[in-house]
Simulated scan of single mutants.
Amino acid sequence: MPRNPSQQVSFTTELAQVNTRLKVARLGLQLEQRGQKLNLRGIFPPKPDSHRLVPHQQRLSLGLPATPPGLEMAERKAMEIALLLIQGRFDWQPYLSPIKHLGPDATVADQVFAFQAHFFNQPPTLGQRSTWSTAYRPYFRKLEALAATRKNISLVELIYATIQSTPANSRSRQACCTAMQALSQFLEIKLPLPLANFAGHYSPTRTQRRQLPSDTEILHYYKQIPNPAWRFVYGIMATYGLRNHEVFFCDYSGLRDQEPEAVIEVLDTTKTGGHQVWPFLPEWVETLKLYDINLPTVNTDLRTTTLQRIGQRVTQQFSRYQIPFSPYDLRHAWAVRTIHIGLPDTVSARMMGHSVAIHTRTYHRWITRRDQQQAVTAARQRWGVLQGN
């Protein structure tokens, strides 16, 4: 947001004061405002793609906003760069746009590789590896495969062709659009048609109309699991409605200490961030022996694995023990149980680690049935009062 005139004067004064300090220190560098960003101006070695052979006056983009906090960071950065210049160790690489290293003959594979390097050079985020392996890599492989067979069309045309190779109104179509949007933004490609036009109307949040396991069935199949560690995983998912991978990223101290509420906390390591969960049904904590924390040995180091792979281990064990429903059916059953019990949707959504909007769409038919039943019950009660019953 643009600053008002008084703020601009104040910032201009601060910028001048910083440059005075840099000049007194004889660092040979000055900060300047260009638009809403701060640049550094001074004598730098030639850029890697330059025809110049000796250091000369150049600008270096710091990528910092022209604000007082940005100015404070820029002054520290100027001092760091000045030291590198004095020591002869300055390198342009961290300050150049990744796409500038891609020459005119760069292949689609080269461009995807540059995006991958850029993606993993960003500050690490939770689930970063999972995002790359599931949301990006499969669709970039499609793009590269098309490029290998259709050599005479542009990258923009290849992007649209890749999207149209996925089923319309599908989850994969939406994911492909997301991946292609990220790549085109990275490569600074202006697409003539917004990719949102191709995404379709798929909604991944509406639970399919299938028969969820009853509480009796859930307890029955719990007893069929011979391995106590995987039996614990099953019991935790059934009682707390956790996602597959969340089981391995929880604070179980409430259970371990046998606290009356038996609340567990899903840690920030998961994609949805930390949140607390209460047991439903509470009596299952004892019935399923959940006070005895007993997790199986699974690699949870996200530097070498992904949340998706961890979740797949749970799915594989369900198949191994011939459980006739998926791990996510335990989660859905937990959610429906809270609906029948009358837990407010806002509370249930928070415990499940998603928004109320997603909760409402996912469990629409059960929530609708509950609300209708409550309305019918209230109407009958009113009618009974009118009839003197």
Rank of each mutant, 00 (worst) to 15 (best):
A335R: 09
T270D: 03
P167V: 05
H56C: 07
T12K: 09
A238N: 02
R303M: 12
P279E: 12
L281K: 09
P204T: 03
Q93N: 15
A196Y: 08
E265Y: 10
P167L: 04
M351F: 13
W278K: 15
P98S: 00
L64R: 07
A378P: 06
E286A: 11
I358L: 11
P296N: 07
R210W: 08
Q111H: 02
A74E: 05
P282Y: 03
T131P: 02
A78E: 13
A378M: 12
Y95H: 14
R243C: 12
F186M: 02
I86K: 13
S50V: 05
W230E: 06
Q208C: 03
A117C: 06
G42E: 03
K37T: 14
P279Q: 14
L83R: 15
P167D: 03
D268P: 09
R361S: 14
G127I: 09
A378Y: 12
Q381P: 01
Q36A: 07
V54H: 04
T362G: 14
V277P: 01
Q111Y: 10
I264C: 04
T306C: 03
Q122I: 08
H340E: 14
L330K: 11
K271P: 09
L295E: 13
R370W: 04
P124E: 15
E286Q: 13
E32D: 00
K151V: 14
N152P: 01
R141Q: 15
N121E: 13
W132D: 10
E157Y: 00
I323P: 04
N4R: 14
A74V: 10
